[in-house]
Amino acid sequence: MEILGLFNYWAVIFLMMSGLYIIIAHDNLVKKLIGINIFQTSIFILFISLGKVSGGTAPVLTESAQLYSSPLPHVLILTAIVVGISTTALGLAIIIRIYKAFGTIEDNEIQQEL
């Protein structure tokens, strides 16, 4: 019961570890960037699930809603998603330039050329 009740945290931990593993294990730079994205997504889920109030609705001000989820984590995560997108965009831009300069995007091959 304890484990099932904390389902969201297990999902977060699984995604976080998968992301970190991809960053460490793969030589391909694009895959590393995908790993970073998965890692960041797990944090977004952590924040969003923190804001959930069981039985609550979406935080929209109406007469019928008495109980609603905390809107603050959603707002924070909107900002964090923007940061994540900027990181991905910049990372991809650098990968394109790495490909032009080195002719490869494999980590081990670049390190041989350095």
Partner: peptide
């Protein structure tokens, strides 16, 4: 470029 990417990750 490689230094920047490493720093980015």
């Amino acid at each position: 470029l490689y230094a920047a990417f490493k720093y980015l990750i």
